[in-house]
């Protein structure tokens, strides 16, 4: 039985489209929702969490409506993307309240909250007020509020946003441990490598529609077919260009002010050859960037070419 069934679901906010005619089934495991900001990830997550109702179509979680059925919401743990919370409370007080409201008996709620905070590595800070927390600590506390009542289904909206690299690795490990413990987890992000670190199963959302779904490697291959652009800012752009001009993976070279833009079909090989050329020639590279790291550009490419689902 599917945990989530989304059937021709659409959601409008007045005249603004949240998601459009989405149909999707989620059986279990960890699934990443990938898409640029404003793609509709949070709308879909909020609908699954019972915070929004579909404008059209139907959405069920564990066979019921999360908006109307409290028994369904009892089985869901949700961590929103925004940072706002009741900052006057300590982490332990906050998670305890959330556990009580999720149905954990009052006598057991503090212990459940302590356990959830410990699971998120927040034991040392649990008696401190949320007001003084860093972004990473807030994310951990939010995740603790989502797991304190031992839900079967976790919805984590951008849980890694703004978190420093060390905390990111730690949080990823903890989320993966929850998945290994049998929880069904949906994690959203606009950064591909964040999702890749968590799961190989992804759903790509763009402009309110499911653009692609499946194994991350298949989707990465799809994305990699699109020429990848690398902008090199350096003192001798012609030297760099001549070193790469004969490579078969290079599709186009464009000289720009203060640098050169290379379009390649094989980014890994291109980066390797670029490093060799720079070392051999002594060119001083001041900046290296990839405009395609903006997922929006890749998604524009995917929609532009296919006009729909892949």
């Amino acid at each position: 039985m599917s945990v989530v069934v989304v059937d021709n679901c659409s959601k409008w906010y007045g005249h603004v489209l949240g998601i459009s005619d989405v149909s999707w089934k989620l059986g279990g495991g960890i699934v990443g929702l990938l898409g640029p900001n404003g793609a509709g990830k949070s709308t879909l997550i909020k609908m699954m969490a019972g915070l929004l109702q579909p404008s059209r179509g139907a959405l069920s979680v564990f066979g019921g409506s999360p908006f109307d059925d409290v028994a369904v919401r009892r089985r869901i743990g949700y961590a929103p993307e925004h940072e706002k919370t009741w900052d006057e409370l300590t982490a332990l007080e906050l998670v305890t309240v959330m556990a009580k409201l999720a149905g954990v008996p009052s006598s057991r709620a503090p212990a459940a909250a302590e356990l959830a905070l410990a699971h998120m590595g927040m034991t040392d800070a649990m008696h401190r007020r949320v007001r003084g927390f860093s972004k990473g600590m807030r994310q951990r506390t939010k995740l603790a509020t989502a797991i304190a009542h031992d839900p079967d289904f976790l919805l984590l909206d951008e849980p890694l946003t703004g978190v420093d690299p060390i905390a990111r690795v730690d949080i990823v490990e903890r989320i993966r441990a929850l998945g290994a413990a049998g929880k069904t987890i949906v994690v959203s992000s606009h950064v591909l490598y964040e999702i890749e670190a968590l799961t190989s199963e992804i759903v790509v959302i763009y402009r309110g529609q499911v653009l692609a779904e499946g194994n991350v490697y298949e989707i990465r291959k799809l994305i990699d077919r699109h020429p990848h652009r690398i902008r090199i800012e350096c003192d001798q752009p012609r030297v760099v260009a001549s070193a790469l001009a004969t490579a078969d993976h290079v599709a186009r070279i464009v000289f720009e002010r203060g640098g050169v833009l290379i379009e390649t079909r094989d980014p890994d090989r291109c980066y390797d050859q670029l490093a060799e050329a720079v070392l051999a020639s002594g060119v001083e590279v001041t900046a290296l960037s990839s405009p395609d790291n903006n997922l929006g550009a890749v998604f524009e490419y995917l929609t532009g070419e296919s006009g729909g689902r892949r």
Binding site: A49, V70, V72, R73, P80, K84, T85, M98, L101, G103
Partner: peptide, 14 residues
């Protein structure tokens, strides 16, 4: 306005 209701309304409470 602060969207802290998302915490309350995602819980199984009326």
């Amino acid at each position: 306005e602060d969207r802290t209701t998302t915490y309350l309304w995602s819980r199984p409470v009326p």
